Lab assay of single mutants.
Amino acid sequence: SGEEFIAMYTYESSEQGDLTFQQGDVILVTKKDGDWWTGTVGDKAGVFPSNYVRLKD
């Protein structure tokens, strides 16, 4: 389980282990570690910068 966040911006990365997503995607955040959080979008999982998302209303 985790908290749902909304992507405010598209995040694209070629780094292994990074979670890429489109603006407006719902991200289920499973771990918060400083500026880099872990989460899932659909069947993808990985880390992403926390300043790209906001808490879902």
Rank of each mutant, 00 (worst) to 15 (best):
S1A: 07
S1G: 13
S1M: 09
S1F: 13
S1V: 11
S1H: 09
S1N: 15
S1L: 12
G2E: 09
G2A: 11
G2D: 09
E3F: 09
E3K: 08
E3V: 11
E3W: 05
E3R: 06
E3T: 11
E4R: 07
E4C: 07
E4W: 08
E4A: 06
F5L: 04
F5G: 10
F5D: 02
F5A: 11
F5Q: 03
F5K: 01
F5V: 06
F5Y: 15
F5S: 08
I6Y: 06
I6H: 04
I6F: 08
I6N: 05
I6D: 05
I6P: 00
A7S: 03
A7T: 01
A7V: 00
A7M: 00
A7W: 00
A7K: 01
A7D: 02
M8N: 06
M8Q: 08
M8L: 11
M8F: 02
M8P: 05
T10N: 14
T10Y: 09
T10L: 00
T10G: 13
Y11T: 03
Y11N: 03
Y11E: 04
Y11R: 12
Y11P: 05
Y11M: 09
Y11K: 03
Y11F: 12
E12N: 09
E12S: 13
E12P: 06
E12W: 12
E12K: 13
E12L: 07
E12G: 08
S13D: 03
S13G: 13
S13T: 08
S13Y: 01
S13H: 02
S13E: 05
S13A: 11
S14F: 06
S14T: 12
S14Y: 10
S14N: 14
S14K: 12
S14R: 13
S14P: 09
E15K: 15
E15C: 09
E15M: 10
E15N: 15
Q16Y: 13
Q16N: 13
Q16V: 10
Q16E: 15
G17M: 07
G17E: 14
G17Y: 05
G17H: 11
G17Q: 04
G17V: 05
D18H: 15
D18F: 13
D18S: 15
D18K: 14
D18L: 10
D18N: 10
L19F: 06
L19A: 01
L19D: 00
L19H: 01
L19P: 01
L19M: 04
T20A: 13
T20I: 07
T20E: 12
T20N: 14
T20K: 11
F21D: 02
F21E: 01
F21S: 02
F21Y: 01
F21C: 02
F21V: 01
F21H: 03
F21A: 02
F21K: 04
Q22C: 11
Q22M: 12
Q22A: 11
Q22W: 05
Q22I: 09
Q22N: 15
Q22Y: 04
Q23D: 07
Q23W: 03
Q23E: 14
Q23G: 07
G24F: 08
G24D: 12
G24V: 00
G24W: 01
D25V: 01
D25L: 00
D25G: 00
D25P: 00
D25Q: 14
D25N: 05
D25F: 00
D25M: 04
V26G: 04
V26N: 06
V26M: 12
V26T: 15
V26Y: 06
V26E: 12
V26F: 05
V26P: 09
V26I: 14
I27H: 03
I27G: 09
I27S: 04
I27R: 01
I27D: 10
L28M: 11
L28A: 12
L28T: 11
L28C: 11
L28I: 15
L28P: 05
L28Q: 13
L28Y: 07
L28W: 14
V29N: 05
V29C: 03
V29G: 04
V29K: 03
V29I: 05
V29W: 01
V29R: 02
T30E: 05
T30I: 09
T30F: 09
T30P: 02
T30R: 05
T30Y: 05
K31A: 12
K31R: 09
K31D: 14
K31I: 05
K31W: 03
K31Q: 14
K31Y: 06
K31C: 15
K32Y: 04
D33S: 09
D33R: 13
D33G: 05
D33A: 11
D33T: 11
D33M: 11
D33P: 02
G34I: 15
G34K: 09
G34F: 06
G34V: 02
G34E: 04
G34Y: 03
G34D: 06
D35R: 09
D35H: 15
D35L: 11
D35K: 15
D35N: 06
D35T: 14
D35V: 09
W36M: 14
W36I: 08
W36S: 11
W37Y: 12
W37Q: 03
W37V: 03
W37A: 03
W37C: 07
W37L: 05
T38C: 09
T38V: 10
T38Q: 09
T38F: 13
T38M: 08
T38S: 08
T38L: 05
G39P: 00
G39N: 00
G39E: 00
G39I: 00
G39R: 00
T40Q: 14
T40L: 07
T40A: 14
T40C: 12
T40H: 11
T40D: 02
T40R: 15
V41K: 15
V41W: 04
V41P: 00
V41Y: 08
V41R: 12
V41D: 15
G42Y: 04
G42D: 10
G42T: 02
G42R: 10
G42H: 12
G42C: 06
G42L: 08
D43G: 09
D43Q: 13
D43F: 05
D43N: 14
D43A: 12
D43K: 13
K44I: 01
K44Y: 13
K44V: 06
K44M: 15
K44C: 04
K44E: 04
K44H: 05
K44P: 01
K44L: 06
A45Y: 14
A45W: 12
A45G: 10
A45K: 05
A45D: 13
A45H: 15
A45S: 15
G46R: 02
G46N: 00
G46P: 00
G46M: 00
G46W: 00
V47Q: 11
V47E: 08
V47A: 11
V47M: 10
F48H: 02
F48M: 02
F48Y: 02
P49R: 04
P49M: 01
P49Q: 05
P49C: 02
P49T: 03
P49E: 00
S50V: 04
S50C: 10
S50R: 15
S50P: 07
S50I: 05
S50E: 01
S50D: 03
N51Q: 06
N51G: 12
N51I: 05
N51Y: 06
N51V: 12
N51T: 13
N51H: 06
Y52T: 03
Y52Q: 04
Y52S: 08
Y52V: 05
Y52C: 08
Y52D: 04
V53K: 00
V53A: 06
V53S: 03
V53G: 02
R54A: 11
R54K: 04
R54L: 07
R54H: 09
R54G: 08
R54Y: 14
R54F: 01
L55V: 10
L55Y: 02
L55W: 09
L55A: 13
L55R: 13
L55I: 10
K56V: 07
K56E: 07
K56I: 05
K56F: 09
K56Q: 09
K56M: 15
K56W: 08
K56G: 10
D57F: 01
D57I: 06
D57C: 12
D57N: 15
